[in-house]
Structures are given as C-alpha cells and as structure tokens.
Write a protein that binds this DNA or RNA. Structure first.
Length: 482
RNA sequence: GGCCCUAUGGUCAAGUGGUCUAAGACAUCGCCCUUUCACGGCGGUAACCCGAGUUCGAACCUCGGUAGGGUCACCA
C-alpha cells in the first residue's frame, strides 16, 4: 500500500442516522485510523425529495456522540472540497464529456418511450445499445439541434471485469452482464453512481467502504476508472444488518436509529461497541472494547461475509456492562436526569437511588419505571404475597407487616444498620423468620413483586414517615382481604 | 428470470484438512450467594442447510441442490 489511506463516509441527510449506516461509517473510520489514514465525511444530499431539514446537523451530532471524528468534511476543509454533493454539481458534466472523448461513454438520444418498449415480460429492461454506434457527425448535428440526450457508459465488449474485494475476495462479472448505464441525466446532472466515482477519485479515496448492495455493480464502476485512466480504489464491502432472517433493518421500521437508542437510555459508546461486533470479531474475541481498542484490533480478516441480525437484548446487556463499570460519580451524572424524571421533584436521596439503580438497570430508560413505586403507591395485587420457599402467604404477610410496623414505629435512627437490626429483633420477638418479614415488608413498602433493592434499602429510601404509612396501609389492605 | 454474494446453537460468533464427541458471549433453564429484590458465582439445554466427490481423514476443499440476501432505474 503505497498511497496514504483515505476513506470516506457519505451519508444522505434523510433523517436519523440508521444503525447499519453508522456501522459502515464506523468501519471506514476504524480502517483509516488503523492505517494512519484520513477519514472524510461527504454529504450526499442530491436527493432533494427525501431531504429532511436538520438531518445534516443530525449527522454531525451522531458522529460526535459516537466518537467518530472526521479529518475532512464540509466543516473541515482538507483541500478536496466541496464536501457537499449539491455544491459539486457543476463538475460532473465536463467529466462525462471527457469520458465520451476518451471512448468510455457515448451520447444517447433514446426517449423514455423507446426505453419502456425494451422492457421484457418480467418488467426488467435492458438497454439495447441503440445509440452506441451513432455516426459522430449525426451526434454533433442532433446535439447542435438541441435534442435532449443522456450520456451512457460504453461498456467494453467481451471482457471480464474483476477485482479483489477486501472481504469477499475475487468478484468477476462479464461485460455482457453489464448494462450501458446512464452517467449523465438529460437534466445535465449525474446519476448517483457516476457522481460517486468522480467524487471518490477527485477526493483521492483509496479505500471504498460500503454495503454489499454495490458488490456486484463495482466491476461496472471500475470500468469507468479504467476508461478515465484513473487508479482504481480498493473496495471493502460490508454485509447488511438485518431485522430478522429476511428483512434488512429499515429506517421506517421501529427504532433502528442511533438517536432512538440514545433517548431510550443507551450509552453512545455501548451502541458503537455493539454495532462494531455485528459483522466483525476481533482476533482475541473480546467483546467490550473502547473505540481506541477497536481501532487497534480492527482487521479485515475478522469481517464476516454473511448478514447479521440485530439483537437488542445483547446490546442491552453490553450497555449494562458499561453502566456497571462506571464510577459512582460517573453513574450518578448520567443517571440523574432519569432519576429526576422518576421522582418528580420529591425529596428522595438521589445518590442513594443512583447507587441502587446502577446494577439493576441495563439501560437508563428503565430507571423511571423501576422507581415508579416512589410516587405510585396504592391498592395493589395481594397475590404477590406468596413465597413458597419462604412459606409466606397473605396471613403470614399480615403478621409480618404488622410486626415490622410495630418494631419500626419506635425506631429513632433511620439508617440501614438500625433498621436491619430493628427488623431482625422484631422478627425474633414475633417468632418469625427474618426472610418472611423482609419479603413481606418489601412488598408492603412498594406494592411491587420486583424492587430495586431489598426491604431495608426500600425503607431507607422512602424515609420513616412514608415507610410507616405504607406498612399501615398494607396492614389494612391485608386485613380487609383475608 | 439473468448476474453477484452468503449458509456453524434462538441471536452474535470462533474455527482456514486431523488437537471438533465444535470455543466464547447474549438469551433461556437450574443451582449457590443474599434471613427479602437485584448484582455476582457455578452449571445445564442448544449448531456445522442437504447430497455427491477429493482425501487415510472434511464444519473447513470441489461440484450440484436447497434456502436467503443483493442487483438489474434519467433513485440515492
């Protein structure tokens, strides 16, 4: 590899950043960093119809959150600009014309109607190269007459176009299977693929990293490079990320975009880590990795050839690992907004709640629901007072709750140790097992079968007044329903 | 339909001719820890798409089939 590596990420600003798309960008970034190369951001905004306001900002925001920093882009001129495709519209026509001169393309005057008549029974149409060998003088004349035209690629006949893909190996396609596709549309603007070839060349892209949808059309683009006499880039095609066995993860379906996961309480680094693993496996099989570690470990060998299904359950787990690995302070900071949302202005000990949640919520978004009992307490289902192993049923629970309430009423110091000791002694006096009292008390205090902490912790969090009120409430509730 | 690509447990995946009666992770199930919820620890269930061939030997190589994906636009 003599040329300095230059890779690019070229998203279309059509809304939120899709997970599959982000992964492509991530790999392009990792590959550039791994090889001390340059990572370029190019905005492909030529599709005015699908363009969404604010989407460009979303691209920046997403990359920034993900930690994927570009070296060149619309906001960082590296001398290869402009980096926004609509600003490059003036340059393609001359290249198309030059390609005609070089014999790699030709003018075509066929109208839509004629093209449609070429369609076969299956609805597939292949251009019959009708204008490929028009007499140059005739072409000149029709051009001068102002007749509408497009410029088509002149695919050499009888050759096999092949290349070595970095992940898929040798790909070869016969030129007979390649259509003389349109390069320049009748409105004078380039088709996407032609613009891509020209841009990639002009920007000095050495490694084109993109989805497999281009795997089989790449030989066609290579023929354009050849016709221009340009050096072909190296290609790395990436298999798609699927929603299930047969459907690709799609933008319009569900929460397949970065932003949604962020708002569900995922950490950017966990998302990035997870998607890096979808389709790539480091040599040492590590799973939890920082961006820096990924950069060091990144290698093409580890990229898989087949598509992979996105599994949010695993991403949740990984997110939980990140959360648990944080220091108390770090966790407190990221969890605070969610905790505040849960307690709604009430005076609970936020640090205590954060400490409780750190090992109990895989994603931050679970915090409000797990803490809902703080503000949501009232009539609850008494069937949850059933613990086979502990031998608890409603009547045992009533005794336990009564006992806990009685013991706690006279307790002055409301600390974990004091409460624990007090409940323990109360249980002994009442001839009950500690577990029976704790279990019943925990349910009584929260009205929930699963709680973010044990009975003692719940009591500490709720405070003496609220705890006693709830125990008394539960006592009455049980009495009424026995 | 033509062409291109892919195929290991429910999911992500290791594996590149013998060390595979096939690793690890998630999920799932069970046990332990916790006098209560989790966390944590330990363990279980679970896979080489099918058929030929090459070879002393095949998850790994070849061919065929099957299934799935991609692509065949004056869309990007």
């Amino acid at each position: 590899m003599d040329r300095t590596v230059r890779t690019r990420f070229a998203p279309s600003p059509t809304g939120f950043m899709h997970i599959g798309n982000l992964r492509t960008g991530l790999y392009a970034y990792l590959f550039a960093r791994k090889n001390n190369g340059t990572f370029i951001l190019r905005i492909e905004d030529t599709d005015q119809e699908r363009k969404v306001d604010g989407a460009v900002e979303m691209v920046y925001r997403t990359l920034k959150l993900a930690g994927i920093e570009h070296d060149e882009g619309p906001d960082k001129d590296g001398g290869y600009g402009p980096y926004v495709q609509t600003e490059r519209m003036g340059i393609y026509k001359q290249y198309a014309e030059k390609l005609v001169e070089l014999g790699g393309a030709y003018y075509c005057f066929c109208d839509k109607k004629r093209l449609e008549s070429l369609e076969d029974a299956g609805g597939v149409h292949t251009y019959d190269k009708h204008c490929r060998n028009l007499d140059p003088a005739e072409v000149r004349r029709r051009l001068d007459a102002g007749e509408p035209y497009v410029i088509r690629q002149k695919v050499p006949e009888g050759v096999v176009s092949e290349y070595e893909d970095m992940v898929f190996g040798k790909i070869s396609v016969e030129s007979a299977d390649i259509e003389d596709g349109i390069l320049l549309k009748s409105d004078g603007l380039p088709t996407y693929n032609f613009a891509n070839v020209v841009d990639d060349h002009l920007m000095g892209i050495t490694h084109v990293i993109r989805g497999t949808e281009y795997l089989s059309s790449t030989p066609k683009y290579n023929l354009i490079y050849d016709a221009f006499g340009w050096e072909r880039p190296t290609y790395m095609h990436l298999p798609p990320i699927m929603k299930d066995a047969t459907r690709k993860l799609s933008k319009r379906f569900g929460d397949a975009n970065f932003e949604d996961f962020i708002s569900k309480g995922y950490l950017p680094e966990a998302i990035v880590n997870y998607i890096a693993l979808l389709g790539w496996c480091p040599k040492d099989n590590r799973e939890k990795m920082t961006l820096r570690e990924m950069t060091e470990a990144f290698d093409v060998d580890g990229i898989s050839h087949s598509s992979s299904i996105f599994d949010e359950a695993k991403m949740r787990w990984l997110n939980g690992e990140y959360l648990k690995a944080m220091s108390k302070e770090e966790y407190y900071n990221v969890a605070l907004p969610w905790i505040e949302k849960a307690i709604g202005g009430k005076n609970y000990d936020k640090a205590e709640l954060a400490a409780l949640m750190q090992t109990r919520a895989d994603i931050l978004g679970e915090i409000p629901e797990k803490l809902a009992f703080l503000n949501n307490y009232g009539e609850y289902d008494l069937d949850m007072y059933a613990h086979q192993k502990m031998k608890v049923d409603k009547s045992v629970a009533l005794a336990a709750v009564r006992l806990a309430a009685d013991a706690l009423r006279s307790l002055d110091e409301w600390s974990e140790e004091a409460i624990k000791e007090c409940v323990k002694q109360g249980a002994e006096r009442g001839g009950m097992k500690g577990g029976q009292v704790m279990f019943s008390m925990r349910v009584a205090l929260t009205g929930e079968p699963v709680t973010p902490g044990g009975a003692i912790e719940m009591a500490v969090v709720l405070g003496k007044e609220e705890s006693l009120a709830r125990l008394e409430f539960s006592e009455k509730l049980l009495e009424r329903n026995l």
